[in-house]
Design a binder for these strands. Sequence first.
DNA 1: TCTCCTTTGTTGGTCGGACCAAATACCACG
DNA 2: CGTGGTATTTGGTCCGACCAACAAAGGAGA
Lengths: 240, 240
Amino acid sequence: MELREIVAPTMKELFIKEIEGKILSGEWKIGEQLPTEREMERKMKVSRTIINSGLSELAQNCFVEIIPRKGVFVGDYMRNGHLNTLISIMNFNGGMLDRKTFDSLMAYRLQNDCECAHLAALNRTDEDLKLLLSLYEKINHTEDIAEIAQLKLDFQHAIYCATGNIIYALVCNSFKQLSLLFAEIIYRQPDSKKPTLNLLDLITAIEKKDAQEARNIMHKIITMRIEELGQSYFCHNFPS
Amino acid sequence: MELREIVAPTMKELFIKEIEGKILSGEWKIGEQLPTEREMERKMKVSRTIINSGLSELAQNCFVEIIPRKGVFVGDYMRNGHLNTLISIMNFNGGMLDRKTFDSLMAYRLQNDCECAHLAALNRTDEDLKLLLSLYEKINHTEDIAEIAQLKLDFQHAIYCATGNIIYALVCNSFKQLSLLFAEIIYRQPDSKKPTLNLLDLITAIEKKDAQEARNIMHKIITMRIEELGQSYFCHNFPS
DNA sequence: TCTCCTTTGTTGGTCGGACCAAATACCACG
DNA sequence: CGTGGTATTTGGTCCGACCAACAAAGGAGA
């Protein structure tokens, strides 16, 4: 009998979701002008404080473009959007991505993670190695599936950090929210089981600074994980 | 005699800059609690509307963590930050990055752009090709350096899009703001000249769907560009 | 009729004062 | 020592108001 924390959404979040929905559903077209803040205030029964702040956040994610003293317009989020935008899109679809986007995402991760394993093997410090090992231990000694998901993300982040290239670490974080959403979806399913992992080989390769080997192992791991992920993710038929 | 548009910063932007400064300078340490919104209102002479909205934006960039009814705390932006965070850091340093971060950034771009060129050659459609060609024409027929910078970003985005993988396009956008900042810095220098480009070979390779050739040419282009960039960027000695 | 200037209204940005609910700190009571 | 109530603190939200820049409408002058 698992219980999960429930959190009440704030008015601002609800407002943002509502507007995002209008835009992502296509009800409001790109370039179109939104109702004025005052009109939204009247119609939606929320204060202008929320409207103004919410629109500002939507603008950050490229869903709207705010032109002071002129109006707010639907933005070209597909053209200008970044990774956060994708999270919004995914949430809009109830945590689901269509098959093509899913495959794109996994292809990118495959490419990137392998490169990271390669670089990590070349540049890792002893501290990096220690962190990886301790995370590996934790993963092995944990039964709670949700916790393992979090630890796996930490492990991944640790590898990205071990590259010695901060940009990789930052990009990794950009994907983190996305990965968390995936994990949540998958581990919510009743038949989800503890994933099989063979991280030790990877750690060994990184320890030996064998870059090519690290890349190969990572490729194997990710491929397998994508396999598992795809199966759980698309087990319920979803409009693709 | 070039004149550039001047835009008055909003109160919110000023507030955010101020708080970011406190954090990035290390004056406020990670985990430390910020003054309450009401106290900031008194001390900084701005309304709580700005404070609340600004803190919310800072939270998005991982500079602070807001815990309702408890307080606002300095976030671990180095650990949790994403690419937007880097832009803030760069702005804090007057548009400058230290040498290590700069090199990391360029290494990432080199790796990624080459992969993109490869994929673009494999997956490009005729429309993609047409767009690339028209952008190339525009670049050649433009003298204004700032405009060329923008066009080059569009060109780059077009290549990322031509991969057929939307994730690459999104990642490209995540870097766009960063690239714009670079362009601005560099083209502000008096001796900046029209960059030499050999994009036509790249387009040809993509047209012929010669993936390996596209990758090689991209590698050459980026390496050259990094060379130029590094020279202009670090010409005035900067604390590294 | 056309041009230029003034007026008026719209719009996002900002303000300040207020109330709410949850978390916390404190204190009396058993 | 533990329990439960109470006052305070804090971010979230609301309301009504003013500001400045922009746009459209209207009027004066050529």
